[in-house]
Structure formats: C-alpha cells, structure tokens
C-alpha cells in the first residue's frame, strides 16, 4: 500500500512504486480529469501539481509523490490562481475537444503562480510542452494574459 495525498486527502492505494502518478490517479483513485496523451512527457495532457510544481504525471513514479501533495484539475478551483485561470478560460471560450485542457490549465496555473505577469516568450517557454491538437493556442495565450491581469 502506498499513501498518496491527492487533492488534500490521503489515499491508501494498492500500487507498485513504479506506477506513474498518472495511472494511480486515473485508474486507481479514479480521478479521470487528468489525461493520458503520450506517456513520455511530450504532450502535457497529464500535468498535475506536486507541491505546487507542474509535473508530467505520466513519467513520474508514485514513489516520488509520497509525503507530497498532488493537486489535480478536480481541485484547482480551490486555488486562487487556478480559479482565475479557469475563469479566463471560460470567458475566452478556450476549449475545443477539451482533451488537453486539464493539462493546459494546470500548466498555466503553475506558470502564473511563479510568474504573475508572463510575457509572450514566457508563455511560449512554459506552455510549449502542452500540445493542443485542436490548436487552441491563441486563446490559451489570451486567457493567460487575462488571468494575469485579473490577479494583478
């Protein structure tokens, strides 16, 4: 049994230490908001926060998260920055198919938490690990700027 703290709750999960956090969250804890897109840190769909840092949960073994706090899309509205990001996403109507968007929101929230006023170049650097096949990039960029200005 491995104890993982997911969204503020300690959960006892019957998993092997090498199981990536992604599958522990999705298949064992049954929180499916976090998505699988590539399994090799290439697409960002699986982005969650580990002690507030954005990580790719598909390549991060569960053992790394022991004793730390995992935050997923299901809980990000509890965070002031996360809430502002979600509000901007809604106002700008960013989503299309929606599959990448949990990861986009988690990455954007982590970006704004560490850099409250990102430039376009900062956004490129922080967000280029998150693929959106629907091409919502212009709206993601606009929504990040909007959330930043609302938080300022």
């Amino acid at each position: 049994m491995t104890t993982l703290n997911i969204n503020g709750v300690d959960q006892e999960l019957d998993i092997s230490d090498d199981m990536p956090i992604l599958w522990a969250i999705r298949d064992i804890a049954q929180l499916t908001g976090t998505k699988f897109g590539c399994g090799m840190a290439q697409c960002g769909a699986c982005t969650v926060h580990l002690d507030g840092m954005a990580i790719r949960s598909c390549i991060t073994p569960a053992s790394v998260a022991v004793g730390k706090k995992i935050t997923t899309i299901e809980h990000i509205s509890q965070d002031k920055v996360g809430q502002a990001v979600q509000a901007a996403w809604s106002e700008i109507d960013v989503v299309q198919c929606g599959y990448c968007q949990s990861g986009q929101i988690m990455s954007a929230t982590a970006l704004l938490a560490s850099n409250p006023k990102p430039s376009d170049a900062d956004i490129d650097a922080a967000m280029s690990g998150n693929i959106c096949r629907c091409g919502t990039y212009p709206r993601i960029r606009a929504a990040i700027h909007q959330a930043a200005s609302k938080l300022a």
């Binding site: 929180l31 499916t32 908001g33 976090t34 997923t72 899309i73 299901e74 509205s77 979600q86 996403w89 809604s90 109507d93 960013v94 989503v95 929606g98 968007q101 949990s102 929101i105």
Partner: peptide
C-alpha cells in the same frame, strides 16, 4: 461544453 471541459468532469 465549456464548463465541464475546464473543470475536468
């Protein structure tokens, strides 16, 4: 479908 695609549901 915006809200549910933003909150992970």
């Amino acid at each position: 479908d915006g809200p549910e695609k933003i909150n992970g549901t």
